[in-house]
Design a protein around this nucleic acid. Structure first.
Lengths: 107, 107
DNA sequence: AATGCTACCTTGTTAAACAAGATAGCTAAC
DNA sequence: GTTAGCTATCTTGTTTAACAAGGTAGCATT
C-alpha cells in the first residue's frame, strides 16, 4: 500500500485470518486482497509471519499441496489467541476516537 | 501509545482537528486526549506539525497568549484540505476491510 | 526443456512514533 | 526578587513496521 496507515494493523489482521482457519502465506496474500486490503505484498507478509512465529503467537506446519510446492500452514497458539484479543481492543481504542475526529471534517 | 497501530493515522487526525479550528500544538495534545487518543506525546505531535508545515499542508502564526508564552496557531492550506480528504478515503479503505476481518474472530 | 504458476524467503530502505529531555515565557506566592 | 509550577515549543536518538525488489525452487502442462 502506498499509505502508511496500515502500520501495526496488518499484524492483527493476519492473526485474525489465521484464527478463522489455518492458512499459508501465499493464500494469506490472496485473502487479504479479497477482504479489500489490496497491494499488501509478500514482502510485508512473510516477515510478519516469521516474526509471529518467533514470538510464538503462531506455529507452522509443512503440508504437501495437491498441485505445486509444499505449503506452510500456520495456526494460532494460545498466546496468539490472547494477542488477537488484545489487538481487537487496541483497534477499538483507535477506531472510535478516529471516527469521532474525522466525522466533523469539512467537505 | 504502546501500540504501533497509530502509525500514519495520527497525521490525518491532526489535519482533521486543525480543519475544525485553528489550534496550537499544546492544545492539540489535550484535544487528542479528549477524543480518546491517550498518551500521544508532544514528541509525536510537534514533529508532525513541523512536517505538515514543511509540506505546506498547514501554516502557522504566532499569537500572544492571555496567560503564558506565545502560541503557534496552525490552520489548513488549500493543499491541506485536499490532503485531509485523501486521508479520509484512505482511512475508509482500511477501516472497512479491517472491520470485516476482525468481526469474525473467535472469542 | 521451456513456460508459467505456486510458494517461500531475504536484503536494504524509508518513514512514523516515541521516550527523554532541553529551553524558555509567564504568573502567583512568598 | 526569586522560586515553583504551569504553559508552550522543539530536538535528538531509537525502535520498529512496511515495502520494493529480487532470489530460489517445486510442480504441471505443453
Amino acid at each position: 500500500m502506498r499509505s502508511q496507515l496500515l502500520k501495526g494493523i496488518l499484524e492483527g489482521c493476519i492473526l485474525s485470518i489465521i484464527d478463522q482457519e489455518a492458512v499459508y502465506g501465499y493464500k494469506l496474500s490472496i485473502k487479504l486482497q479479497q477482504f479489500g486490503l489490496n497491494d499488501v505484498s509478500e514482502g510485508s507478509i512473510y516477515p510478519i509471519l516469521l516474526r509471529l512465529q518467533k514470538e510464538k503467537l503462531i506455529e507452522g506446519e509443512m503440508r504437501p499441496s495437491p498441485s505445486g510446492p509444499k505449503r506452510k500452514y500456520y495456526k494460532l497458539t494460545q498466546n496468539g489467541i490472547t494477542a488477537l484479543n488484545e489487538f481487537y481492543s487496541e483497534w477499538q481504542s483507535i477506531q472510535f476516537p478516529v471516527e469521532k475526529i474525522i466525522q466533523r471534517r469539512s467537505k
